[in-house]
Structure formats: C-alpha cells, structure tokens
Nucleic acid binder design. Structure first.
Lengths: 187, 187
DNA sequence: CACTGCGATGTCAGTCACTGTCATCACGTA
DNA sequence: TACGTGATGACAGTGACTGACATCGCAGTG
C-alpha cells in the first residue's frame, strides 16, 4: 500500500478527468491534478508516463480481451469475422460505462495531442490483433489488413455510437458497420 | 525573404532530419537543429508548431493530391476504387524520393511520439477523403468506412514497400493490398 | 536618395512537462 | 525491536514551447 491513503492511481485518474473536463486538457496542470488528489507531481509521473496517459489506463485490458477473443474463436471462423467477434467482446465493458466514455471522448475530441495518443493506442491494438491472427495461421498481408479493417470498423462505429441519442447498442453499430464495409468492398 | 539567407524553412527541415538520423529524435535538441541551420530556436517554432512537425511538411501536399484525385474521378467509379485511385496518385511523389522516405521512416519507427504524429496526419487524411467522398454523394457510414479502409490499405502497403528489397512499385503493392482486402471481406 | 511600412528574425524572460537523485515514511517480517 | 521493501516526498535540473518587444532587410513612395 501507499504511504497514506490507498488507491493513489485511481485518485489521480479521477482528478485528471475532472480537471480536463472542467478546464480543458491544456489548461489543466499536473500540479493541479496532484493537489486535488492529495499527492505530488513526482508521484503522478511514477504512475503515468505523461500527462496524457492518465486517460488511457483501460487500454491494457481492452487489448487482452481482444486477443483472447481471437485466439479463442473456432478454427472455421474467417479472419475478418474473428476480428469482428473481438470488437464485440471489447464493446461490452464500454457499453456499461457509456456516460464515462462520453465524457472521456469529449475531452479527447477537443485536443489534438489526446487524439494522437488514442490513435497510437488503437494502432497498438491493431498490431496485437494482427499478431493473434497470424497465430491462427492467417498469412500476410491478410492478417494486417483484417486487423486494420477491424480498426476502421471500430473507429467509425464507436464515433457513431457516442454521437447517437442512445438507441442502438455498440455491438449493433459494429455489426452494421461491418455489413457496410463488406458491401463497399464487394464491387 | 528572410533576414539573411533565404530558405530558412528548408534549412531547418534538412538539419532536423540529419540530426534525428544521427542521434535519434529525443537526443537531438531544437537548439542543435537551429545552430546547424544558422537560426535561433524562436524561428524554428515560428515555422513548425513543435519539434515533430518538422518531419511532416509534405502532408498538406499529399492531402491536396488525394482530394483532387477523388473529386476528379469519373462519376461511375465506386467509392473504394476512387480511394484506391487517390492512393495511387499519392504514391507517385513518394516513389520519386524512396531514399528520403526510407530515412524518414526509420526515424519515425524508432520513436513513439513521431508515430503518434504520423497517425494523426493519416487520420486527417482519411477525414479529408471521407469529406471528398461525401461531396460525390456517398452517404455515411460508407464514406468514412471507405476512407478508413483506404488508409488501412495504404499503411500496410507503404510498410511493405519500404521494407522490401525494391522490386515492386508502391502503386503495385497498393493494388495487391486492395485485392487482398477485397478477398478477405468477401466471406 | 531619404522615408516608411511590412514581414521575418533575434532577444529575453517565463511556464510547464518530465527526469534523476536521495531522503523519508509505512508496513510486513524475523 | 530491528530490518528490508516499496511507495512517496523534496528538490534541482533540462528542454520544449510561448509571449512580448526590439531589430533588421526589403519593397514601395515621394
């Protein structure tokens, strides 16, 4: 445990998201975040590589879910369908925290530096997915293409899901995007 | 023209790429770059928003080429094929400077911050492409999906082209990747 | 040729993200 | 009680980036 109160990392994440929402990412300083969390700047940088990373702690979990879904899919499933299955698996935890996802996404949408970090996280996700596909025997360049295409589907679907009034499920929007992509590439 | 020698921007770009190759992106300071270019730090930041941007000046040109290719494509051409045409149009100027592209890509591959910037540039490219498709009458989510799929094709093809001994043309690799994607989504 | 407006550069001080280093504290264990 | 371990605090330092103002070169104008 920590020196005084436990859960330092979680407190930092909460304080950071709050401040980023209140005053914007650039206007919030790390000193303010750590003050609100009752810690020092140095401790912030022990938990997070930089000021942006504090918004992306869930990434490791998403990556694990994705890879497991692909590795665990039946042999007969086609590469792109295995990727779609992984996306559906990932959508579940996001679905549960729609409110939080929306607040987070609003912050990210307002700042280019945060968009960069999100794109890097998604790219590393695609890289891991391509790896998992290769372990299923899928050859290049099909593995990378399916991974990147899945990423494209997810990006489009996630954006639509966040922006929509709230009727459809994220999994539904993903399926819809997949169908549209298949139709567009059928020509 | 500038205060003394003309071409300040170009001198900064050259000096930066040289230093990034010699000692790596993080180890090179802006002060060193501007010393080599015979300018001051302040001038560097007047020409480029940050230390990374100096490697991405060709982006605006690529974007224009892309959009023009799509807008100029015949009405009958399917969305994804219009995107493929745009990618081929973009590949021409890259083809001519293969050596430079390789050096640049080596620097970028060695540093996460530069990869982030590249991903952001590619994302803005995709966004512009989706815009151009919409102006052709393509509806959502097809426009965004085709743009993102085209981005996926380009990423995979470019990486392969840079890494290959040098036999195939970038345009060839792009066509090959497009075929593979169509095959993978046909299931 | 002198004058003047403008754009690009130089100068300087300042903020803030991020790092290295060492001291300090809480907690478990012998 | 003594000790080891891990997380935190304290502090100095580097470097990216910014704002404000002075300065210089070049064009046009008279």
């Amino acid at each position: 445990m920590g020196r005084w109160e436990p859960g330092a990392r979680e407190r930092l994440e909460r304080a950071a998201l709050e401040l980023y929402v209140e005053r914007g990412f650039e206007q919030a300083t790390v000193a303010e975040i750590t003050n609100r969390a009752g810690l020092t700047e140095r401790t912030f940088f022990r938990h997070f590589a930089d000021k942006r990373e504090v918004l992306f702690s869930g990434q490791a979990e998403m990556l694990e879910i994705c890879v497991n879904a692909i590795v665990g899919a039946p042999e007969a499933v086609a590469p792109l369908d295995a990727v779609a299955e992984a996306l559906r698996a990932v959508s579940a935890p996001l679905e549960e925290r729609r409110e939080r996802s929306q607040r987070r996404q609003t912050v990210i949408a307002a700042n280019a530096a945060l968009q960069e970090r999100e794109l890097l996280k998604l790219a590393s996700l695609a890289s891991a997915v391509a790896d998992a596909l290769r372990r299923r025997g899928v050859t290049e360049p099909t593995a990378s293409l399916c991974a990147e295409a899945g990423l494209a589907i997810f990006k489009v679907a996630y954006e639509r899901w966040i922006g929509e009034p709230g009727g459809r499920t994220l999994a539904d929007v993903i399926q819809d995007s997949l169908d549209h992509l298949k139709a567009a590439t059928a020509g």
